[in-house]
Amino acid sequence: MTDKVIYAMYDDDDVTKEACQSLVDNGVHVADVFSPFPIHGIDPIIGIKHTRLGIAAFMYGITGLLLAIIATRYFMVSDWHGINIGGKPNFSYLENIPSFVPILFEFTVLCAAHGMALTYFLRNKTLPGMPARNPDPRTTDDRFVVEVRLAENSNFSLDQLNDMIKETGIVEIDEKTIK
C-alpha cells in the first residue's frame, strides 16, 4: 500500500513546537518530528509516550545483583567453604558480606548500564552500519522536519493538509510517496 507523506521543514525549535500544537489542535495526526537536538515539551504534543528504558535499567540491575549474589556465594561460601582468608573464614554469606558489597555494586551497575544501552540501540534501531533514515540531511544541523502521513489523517485531503501546514511558519515543504 502506498502512502503520501508530507515533510514540513522549520528553522526554529519553538516554531516547530507551535506548529505541531496548531496542527494537533486542528485534528491532524503528526507522525514524527526530526530535529538536530531534543525539543523539550514536544513529546506530549505529538503523543509520544514516555520511554520505559529507565524501568528496563532497573530490571537489568536487579538481575545483575542476583547473579552477583549467586556467584559470590558459590565461589566463597559453597565451593570454598570454611577456607580462612585474612582471618575471615567463609562460613556464612552474611558474616562476610562487607567484602562482597563492592562486587555486588559493580556488577549491578555493569548489568544495568549495558543492558539498558543495548536495549536503547535495539529499540532505536541504531546499530553499526545502519543507513541514515532522516528525511533530510539538514535535520541533523539546523532544520526541523515535521512528518505528516496522509493515511493517518483520512479526514483531510492532501491539499487540506498542505494548506494547514503552510500556515505554520514553514521554510520548505516536501511530499513523498512511500510504499
Binding site: 514524527d32 509520544i48 514516555h50 528504558l53 532505536n124 541504531t126 546499530l127 553499526p128 552500519g129 541514515a132
Partner: peptide
C-alpha cells in the same frame, strides 16, 4: 555513517536519548 549507527533524530529517539543519558548519569 558506520559510526553514527544510522541515527535519525526523530522525537522518540530523542526521548529515549534523554532518559538513557539521565539514567546512565545516575548510574555513573
Amino acid at each position: 555513517g558506520i559510526l553514527s549507527f544510522g541515527w535519525t533524530g526523530n522525537a522518540k529517539a530523542w526521548n529515549r536519548f534523554e532518559i538513557v543519558s539521565l539514567v546512565l548519569a545516575g548510574l555513573a
